[in-house]
């Protein structure tokens, strides 16, 4: 209690309404906005995690010679990359809810919740973008490497596990880092379907105090910090997975 009261006392000392920006309010509302960070991180990590497996499946379908699988993957990627995320969220949350058979199906307990709709929309969306990234990575594996692995007698899963995936992963990492940042930013859209992550809380505070600039600046700062952490993580992974490119010490 003493820490928080001390914090608010510190906020009191900052310039308030008379100045350009109401720093007092920005400082006071920071803890409220911070409460949205866990939900944002949760949405990002769950949808990225499931989306990665989905994307792997879609990428394999896209590379397969089966006409039906290939066509499905093409259509999937075309739809999710060609239309705005907002449309996808609305279609899931409002669109599917109108049908009787959806409301009576076993999926309804999930689809009526904004939380699961948000996660589903984000997952399907990142699945499409990541599928293209993975496809690029898989296609960048030099054919000679696959050939020599085959010559060594590797086949199927072993070939993928030992040769193709590690090379493709390294190749796809920078692009996947961008996708992770896009996802962090994408989570702000689910505030429109009533989820209280950072942007949702920011909007709630603004509706009460009518100080849009101050609150959105703080919210923006939180997103910047999250994205900075993501870029650092990707940088670390990139160095870790390219040992042959490191400079000798």
């Amino acid at each position: 209690m003493t820490i928080s009261s001390g914090y608010f006392q510190m906020c009191e000392g900052l310039p308030g309404r008379e100045g350009w920006l109401n720093f007092n309010l920005m400082c006071e509302k920071l803890p409220d906005l911070l409460k949205g960070v866990p939900l944002t991180i949760e949405l990002v990590s769950i949808s990225l995690f499931i989306g990665l497996f989905l994307a792997l499946g879609i990428a394999m379908m896209r590379l397969s010679n089966n006409r039906v699988l290939n066509g499905f993957a093409r259509g999937y990627v075309f739809y999710f990359r060609g239309s705005p995320l907002l449309v996808q969220v609305f279609l899931l949350y409002y669109g599917f809810g109108q049908f009787e058979f959806v409301q009576q199906s076993f999926l309804w307990p999930f689809l009526k919740e904004a939380y699961w709709c948000g996660i589903l929309a984000l997952t399907l969306n990142t699945g499409a973008y990541t599928a293209e990234i993975i496809r690029g990575g898989l296609q960048s594996v030099p054919f000679g490497q696959i050939e020599s692995a085959r010559a060594m007698g590797m086949s199927g899963l072993l070939l993928y596990r030992r040769i193709i995936f590690p090379i493709a992963f390294r190749q796809a990492l920078p692009a996947y880092g961008n996708e992770m940042i896009l996802m962090v930013k994408g989570t702000s859209l689910v505030s429109i379907i009533t989820l209280m992550e950072i942007t949702g809380i920011a909007k709630q505070i603004i509706a009460k105090y009518w100080t849009p600039v101050e609150i959105f600046l703080i919210a923006g700062l939180l997103y910047l910090i999250l994205n900075f952490l993501v870029t650092q993580l990707v940088k670390y992974l990139e160095i870790k997975f390219t040992p042959y490119l490191r400079h000798p010490k």
Partner: peptide, 18 residues
Amino acid sequence: TVVRGIPELLVIYLFFFG
């Protein structure tokens, strides 16, 4: 860095309200 690092929705809200 800032504009690419914060959600598009936030920029749009900022302009709409501010």
